[in-house]
Design a protein around this nucleic acid. Structure first.
Ligand SMILES: [Mn+2]
Ligand SMILES: [Mn+2]
Ligand SMILES: [Zn+2]
Ligand SMILES: [Zn+2]
Lengths: 138, 138
DNA sequence: ATATAGGATGCAATGGAAGTGCATTTACTG
DNA sequence: CAGTAAATGCACTTCCATTGCATCCTATAT
């Protein structure tokens, strides 16, 4: 069993050919990807299949979904031992206004947020917009 | 000149009848509103006009736009002296999974975010999802 | 008061992204 | 090999945002 297959097995996702390809694609990417990105890469396969593949990945903790405010949902592989837990796993995301790419800053966890009395947090989304290191370095 | 008119004048927005009505509606709301909300309230006027009214408000600093991750943009009046400045004015938003309402927590400014070398922040969006005080108090 | 111009409004259409229903194919099990 | 459940592919729908263009309104100049 390959490493890729192992990842899916560990998360109770049946390793189909398509899923392995998408998984590999996500793993090789340094930045987050959208459904349109994936669609463009696997131009021979159907959008719905890719859509449901990503959905399955997210539901089973293989990947996480990012709402970076651009209107198109981004996806990225979860780190090893990630449970997408609010307190320990959620990191911030950075969207570059220049290259239009969104990156996971996995080392930058979301700071603890104080809420008014009565409010209960279940999830936190923190997106910083600006210019990324690559675009600044030109 | 009315208070409402004054607000618009101060932000270089010509105070038309429609704009004054929308402004009043926003001012009376304790929570953020979507275009659909406004459309439902002003059922006699056109959606595009309301859309452009909101756009004008946002562009001129009368209101700010909130992406709460629900897929429909929310709007809220800016506080007095707000310049939507990243460091001083940006506050966190809370979206309740129960009542589906999004509120501005204007007293809760966004904490300073450390970014890796080379990254430059221009804007920050922080949305907490969970259960609001009203829904918890039942 | 009337003409004129620029902005505001209304209507219709477009486009992007997400999501669903259903038929077909594939892969596993006995 | 047959049977079954899941995965895939295709078509369609819905929702929200956005634009083009015609018309209306209002402030200003003559
Ligand atoms: Mn991430
Ligand atoms: Mn707000
Ligand atoms: Zn960049
Ligand atoms: Zn609530």
């Amino acid at each position: 069993m390959s490493d890729l297959e192992q990842i899916l097995e560990n998360n109770n996702v049946k390793p189909t050919a398509m899923r392995l390809l998408v998984l590999q694609y996500l793993l090789n990417k340094k930045v987050t990807v959208s459904l349109v990105n994936i669609e463009a890469h696997f131009h021979n396969s159907d959008r719905t299949t890719l859509y449901r593949t990503l959905k399955t990945f997210v539901e089973n903790g293989v990947a996480h979904q990012i709402d970076d405010g651009t209107g198109s949902t981004k996806y990225a592989i979860c780190e090893e031992n990630c449970n997408c837990d609010v307190d320990t796993d959620l990191h911030l995301h950075f969207h570059c206004a220049n290259c239009n790419e969104t990156v996971c800053l996995t080392a930058h966890k979301i700071p603890h947020i104080n809420l008014p009395e009565g409010f209960k947090a279940e999830n936190v989304n923190l997106v910083v917009k600006g210019i990324c290191d690559k675009c600044n370095g030109q």
